[in-house]
């Protein structure tokens, strides 16, 4: 049997020291162990992203959704709407020209701020960090957004505007 070292301070004594100075002191060994713990936690959270991606894959939008009538949105204006599925996603419909319609997700791909269409410059602006997107394609023109805006296909059926998943 292993003999206890009489000189060794038991763990409970070192965990609850008498002096307050010792209680608040973090030595380098503890700091290194904390970094090890943090490293494990980061690996776990990275695993959480993988599990989430497997368990909840993003589904494409099914079917056509009615948005508004053609006359409701004049040329150069935008119309905000949302589609309810697993979660409510805000979109915006832009009337570019007489027969040109675009529908984009209204969340900036940088930090999910609500974007808006500026007709003067024909661009979509994110007011939070001045990111700009092309109103025609949704591509990033300027600023911090890393990806283009997700786009929906717009269908005009006898004056009624519908949106559906973009065919790639």
């Amino acid at each position: 049997m292993e003999q206890e070292d009489p000189e060794k301070i038991p763990n409970w004594k070192s965990d609850f020291p008498i002096q307050s100075k010792k209680a608040s002191h973090v030595n380098r060994r503890e700091f290194a162990k904390f970094l090890g713990l943090l490293s494990g936690a980061l690996a776990l959270s990275n695993g959480g992203i993988v599990i989430k991606a497997i368990a909840f894959p993003s589904k494409p939008l099914e079917g056509e959704h009615f948005v508004c009538h053609e006359n409701d949105v004049p040329v150069g204006k935008m119309f905000q709407f949302s589609i309810e599925g697993n979660k409510v996603v805000p979109y915006m419909l832009i009337h570019l020209e007489n027969t040109e319609w675009r529908a984009f997700e209204q969340k900036c791909t940088h930090l999910s701020c609500a974007v808006r269409y500026i007709d003067d410059t024909k661009r979509i602006e994110c007011p939070c960090h001045h990111g700009y997107f092309d109103a025609d394609t949704g591509e990033v023109l300027q600023g911090p957004p890393p990806r283009p805006l997700p786009q929906l296909e717009v269908v005009n059926k006898e004056g009624k505007i519908y949106v559906k998943e973009m065919k790639s």
């Binding site: 490293s39 690996a43 990275n46 992203i49 993988v50």
Partner: peptide, 12 residues
Amino acid sequence: AVITFIGSFLFA
């Protein structure tokens, strides 16, 4: 996501 998880796990 998978590749970064494997890398992060190895670092842990």
